[in-house]
Design a binder for these strands. Structure first.
Lengths: 212, 212
DNA sequence: GCCAAACTTGACTGGCTGGTCAAAATGCAG
DNA sequence: CTGCATTTTGACCAGCCAGTCAAGTTTGGC
């Protein structure tokens, strides 16, 4: 019903504020424990409200989960969408890697939410993976392939190149605890992101084989 | 008590078989849902026994979890331990990447168990990360550094090179569903692992910049 | 074949969790 | 200030879950 939709789309200040607080709290909780391991009480407490009140804004735990996933997926794809066929190949790839690494640094919860969802079998986003995500990746893989055909990039499998970039950048969000533990970096020390950026760029652009 | 330990170490055929079945089932369940999201009933059913019987072999859910984690961590480190300072650098790294990719293919549950544990804050293996894991990585990073100093490898941060290799190889275990969805590969099709191996090797050894 | 030890299980408990409901508190237009 | 709609919450329920227990069945040494 269009009237009902219009009414629900226009939300009061209180609705706006509380729905935002809930989604923010839900991201923090779901990203650590996954869907099954999280409880509505945890989310309610982090959002600073009672459980029944939270359920006044969202009909169920699953509805919260889907909402926060959707909100996250959109911003997750933005950097890849920005890959410009008209740009310089190495420059574009470098920009993409840097953007993903920046996201891993600034909003690791988003990456972890996604990782948890995939690890548990992607029950909520199977259609997204085979639909919009596959389409976007296929499109950008074609762009990479074009650059390779033009001799501007080493010819390799473009899909797997994208996977490599995802893997390396998201690793610094998803496995941050391990990275910090192995490096021996204390909590406030953020050097690892800059170091990672330099290392990844060096390997991608030049490889490990030394040049004379 | 040494007598008690000796007695418990020597296990009957039934103990051997059932403990093995439990650990195997626990790996399958924990690797998908994480610790909090898994139930003893799920594990018992997969292991083909009743819940009380399972609790006859392990005192608690946490004890099962720790056991299966420990068993997994050991085999997880083996390939890195095998990195030989006396070998040819590029050959050794290639062997390591291939070994990790083979593990991602043949036993993805192990990688996923580990990923779930890290994502949820590594409550059970914090000491392992800062202890044995850090020591091993530091040792092998020194080996890499030695090769770089000798001019046999492009000089980059060796710790982050190891992270890159972990990230790229484990991605094909942890995110397999996403990889398959994006590639459009059906269930029985295992091409992606060979393709990944070629692509990763090409990038690591030669980089993306084309050579004349 | 006997019997004690090892193994197995149905029935149960107490605490937690997703979700409901009715009543109370608050916000707000006139 | 009044009256209605929105928001908030304490109390509650049904189902699930880790773990217990007492009573049963099987195994294996003799």
């Amino acid at each position: 019903m269009s009237i009902a939709e219009a009414a629900s789309a226009k939300r009061s200040r209180i609705q706006q504020k509380n729905r935002g607080a809930i989604l923010e709290a839900a991201l923090e909780v779901f990203s650590v424990h996954g869907f099954r391991g999280s409880t509505i009480d945890q989310i309610a407490e982090r959002a600073g409200m009672s459980k029944p009140n939270l359920l006044y804004y969202f009909p169920s735990k699953e509805a919260i989960y889907v909402s926060v996933l959707e909100r996250t997926l959109a911003e997750w794809l933005a950097p890849l969408e920005a890959l410009d066929p008209a740009g310089d190949p190495l420059e574009e790839i470098g920009r993409y890697v840097a953007a993903k690494l920046r996201m891993a640094h600034r909003k690791p919860e988003a990456s972890r939410l996604f990782a948890n969802e995939i690890l548990s079998g992607a029950p909520a986003i199977a259609g997204f993976l085979t639909g919009p995500l596959k389409s976007l990746v296929d499109e950008k893989a074609a762009v990479l392939r074009g650059w390779m055909d033009a001799g501007a990039l080493t010819p390799i499998d473009p899909h797997h190149l994208i996977f490599m970039i995802w893997a390396v950048t998201q690793h610094y969000a998803d496995f941050d605890i391990q990275v910090r533990a192995v490096l021996g970096h204390p909590a406030g020390d953020d050097r690892r992101f800059a170091d990672a950026g330099r290392t990844v760029a060096a390997v991608l652009f030049e490889g490990l084989r030394p040049r004379p």
